[in-house]
């Protein structure tokens, strides 16, 4: 088992898949120089500029052309650079890629991985910081995943490349350098959550980098005598309802935490689904960003942030406010 960064784990998965299958290729701006986050460094040397393809600053064409190439028999990995810029290719993703197989009565597939680096990154402000995963979870036809660890960024990238459905692959920009052990024999299935920590008092559900913050919060809680169970969903569509239900049956308490705006966020979906199915000891809670915009100045930016202490505090409150 090797220790590697979140960025390198995905790169290894891409390289292995490209060695195995000559129809896999990557396309996006600046990939020939390694990509803006260096998540493609070295790949052009091995695979050449056709398969690690630079692209004009044409997000709609990157997405649309990759889709056309997918229908013509290739398996593209599309790099959108920042999740924010992927909005320039919304028609291509939502109206074309997600719907083609259905609209054409099953005649076509779009086996594509659409990489959209997401999330807050110090002082990147409102157009380079967003977490829009709930938008994509809302669109039938798309698989949506948000890996939080190097292991998952390896295993889920492998699964995404192998998948015949279009996969919206949201990597968190703040954790490119995070290191962890990666077992290349370990497979991850979409729709199977990771149990990041066991506990019997409260269930913390999260994904992407906020799942890591939940683990941190759980450590704090443990020192206060509260054992939190941390479930990292890893994929939002499909999402592991069974794992969440089982955990909430045990703990009777549910807190969902995510970096995205709380209003109409995916946390609402999780809370509503659990509330419809599982009786709980306390009211469930979701913790997300206020419905405000992400600013440049750190003191303003921080007001939109969900932190580990906030998660611990929210969980602690749920323990204390328990009805008699």
């Amino acid at each position: 088992m090797a220790v590697m960064s979140y960025a390198d784990a995905a790169k290894l998965a891409v390289a292995e898949a490209m060695r195995d299958d000559p129809t896999v290729w990557c396309v996006g701006e600046d990939l020939g120089r390694g990509g803006v986050f260096k998540q493609y460094t070295g790949l052009v040397e091995e695979f050449g500029p056709q398969r690690i393809s630079d692209a004009p600053i044409s997000e709609a064409a990157i997405m649309g052309a990759a889709f056309g190439a997918a229908m013509a028999g290739t398996r593209p990995i599309v790099e959108m650079r920042f999740a924010d810029f992927a909005l320039c290719a919304t028609d291509e993703l939502v109206n074309q890629i997600a719907k083609a197989r259905f609209m054409f009565g099953g005649q076509s597939r779009a086996p594509m991985v659409i990489r959209k680096p997401m999330g807050m990154w110090r002082s990147s402000a409102a157009q380079h910081s967003q977490s829009l995963e709930s938008w994509y979870a809302h669109i039938p036809g798309l698989v949506v995943c948000c890996p939080a660890t190097p292991q998952d960024n390896y295993s889920m990238m492998k699964a995404a490349i192998a998948c015949d459905d279009p996969v919206v692959y949201l990597e968190h920009k703040n954790i490119w350098a995070h290191e962890g052990e990666v077992d290349t024999t370990k497979a991850v299935e979409f729709g199977k959550a990771a149990l990041r920590r066991s506990g019997q008092h409260v269930t913390l559900v999260s994904w992407s980098h906020t799942a890591n913050l939940c683990v941190e919060a759980a450590d704090t809680l443990a020192r206060q005598g509260v054992e939190a169970e941390v479930i990292d969903l890893r994929s939002l569509w499909p999402w592991d309802k069974a794992a969440v239900f089982d955990s909430v049956r045990k703990t009777g308490r549910l807190l969902v935490a995510h970096e995205a705006v709380s209003v109409a966020g995916f946390g609402a979906e999780v809370v509503a689904t659990v509330a419809q199915n599982i009786p709980m000891k306390t009211l469930p809670k979701r913790l997300g960003s206020p419905r405000g915009l992400i600013a440049y100045a750190p003191n303003l930016e921080d007001q939109m942030r969900v932190t580990a202490p906030m998660i611990a505090k929210a969980a602690q409150d749920m323990m204390e406010n328990e009805p008699a």
Partner: peptide, 9 residues
């Protein structure tokens, strides 16, 4: 763009 992509494929 999709057509350009089919040609790219």
């Amino acid at each position: 763009t999709i057509a350009a992509g089919a040609a790219h494929g």
